[in-house]
């Protein structure tokens, strides 16, 4: 049986059997994979502290090529992101991010750009005081990685430049000019400020993401527009998003 060496982020883990865990990783070389970590719930296991959610690791695992679940041989932490767990809001946001990835990416479909984005986002969430903006940037970039990059330059119906934007079509994923506007529930209002934020989110260098801010008063509109765009692609309700929204309403 071959041994595989790669770098990976822990997306989620669930208990299995007496003392084992099944870990879902997003790896650098093989995309999403599932591995069993034998005995990892025991305190004396060498794997126990390393396999916490969001941890970035170097892993060695083995198994037959066409297997669904591999077995972890060893792992070393590259970065633990343990501060995320010290705050419930940060934990909720990161849980939503990993649930999005787990839902939208099938196994063994590598995407190095996504891994790089994920690491930058975790790092920012650990440090930033404005975690909501970081999440919005992730959602915009994630849509783009999935192939649904918001079309913000010309009208998605007539292909003509738009001088005064009024609507965004969630299904077509782009702006609509006043001549093509139809009054359906998939065409929502969008402000010039929100469009500028989304444009900047798409182009900003990952290392500069912390400098971007959502203009005051536009938070709710941008949140709902991005979530609706993602929901249409996901086709199901995410548990972590429901909780995120209930926290939001509890705190506001």
């Amino acid at each position: 049986m071959p041994l595989y060496h790669t770098a990976a982020v822990v997306l989620r883990r669930r208990n299995f059997g007496e003392a084992d865990r099944i870990i879902t990783f997003f790896t650098h070389d093989f995309g999403k994979i599932k591995c069993i970590a034998k005995g990892s719930r025991r305190f004396k296991s060498k794997l126990s502290g390393n396999l916490e959610p969001f941890t970035f690791l170097r892993i060695i695992y083995f198994g037959k090529e066409n297997q669904n679940i591999y077995q972890i041989n060893s792992c070393d932490i590259i970065r633990s992101f343990h501060k995320i767990g010290e705050d419930y809001k940060r934990l909720s946001i990161c849980s939503y991010i990993v649930e999005l990835i787990d839902t939208m990416f099938k196994e063994k479909d590598p995407n190095r750009e996504l891994l790089g984005l994920l690491l930058s986002i975790f790092s920012l969430i650990e440090e930033s005081s404005d975690v909501d903006t970081v999440l919005r940037i992730f959602e915009v970039r994630f849509l783009s990685l999935l192939g649904y990059k918001p079309a913000l330059d010309v009208c998605v119906r007539c292909n003509r430049p738009v001088d005064r934007v009024i609507r965004f079509n969630l299904i077509k994923g782009g702006i609509i000019c006043k001549n093509c506007f139809r009054n359906t529930r998939h065409e929502i209002e969008i402000s010039r400020g929100a469009l500028n934020f989304i444009k900047k989110s798409l182009t900003i260098d990952l290392s500069m993401m912390g400098r971007l801010k959502i203009p005051k008063g536009l938070e709710k509109g941008i949140r709902e527009m991005l979530h609706s765009s993602l929901s249409i692609r996901i086709g199901k309700r995410l548990k972590s998003y429901e909780l995120l929204i209930s926290n939001h309403s509890r705190n506001s």
Partner: peptide, 11 residues
């Protein structure tokens, strides 16, 4: 325990 991925929140 709080676990957003499993849908467990403070309530």
């Amino acid at each position: 325990v709080l676990s957003p991925l499993d849908g467990v929140g403070p309530d």
